[in-house]
């Protein structure tokens, strides 16, 4: 899929699905408000997993440069948008 067809809504939807696959207890609607504080089990390994799943799902390379800054859905969404 080419990046240009991805609307912000679609990005959010797909990223929500990524979050739910990594955190099955998370509700799809609640995913966009998820943060490291609110999601049980979200540690640095979870962030790595989210990166890998996002890269696979979006066919994109995020790199690990900014991995330490990602502490919420919104952070990852912003990073993703900047890479598309």
């Amino acid at each position: 899929m080419s990046g240009s067809t991805l609307t912000p809504e679609r990005i959010r939807k797909r990223l929500s699905r990524v979050f739910v696959s990594a955190f099955p207890d998370l509700d799809l609607q609640e995913a966009p408000s998820a943060t490291m504080e609110t999601v049980q089990g979200w540690d640095s390994i979870a962030t790595l997993t989210l990166f890998m799943l996002t890269e696979e799902d979006m066919s994109i390379s995020l790199g690990y440069d900014r991995i330490g800054e990602i502490k919420s859905f919104a952070d990852l969404e912003a990073l993703l948008v900047s890479k598309i």
Binding site: F23, I45, T49, L53
Partner: peptide, 14 residues
């Protein structure tokens, strides 16, 4: 799959 290892592994560790 990697995600299965992450999800189930997290459950097992907890």
């Amino acid at each position: 799959k990697p995600v299965d290892i992450f999800v189930h592994g997290t459950r097992l560790l907890a």
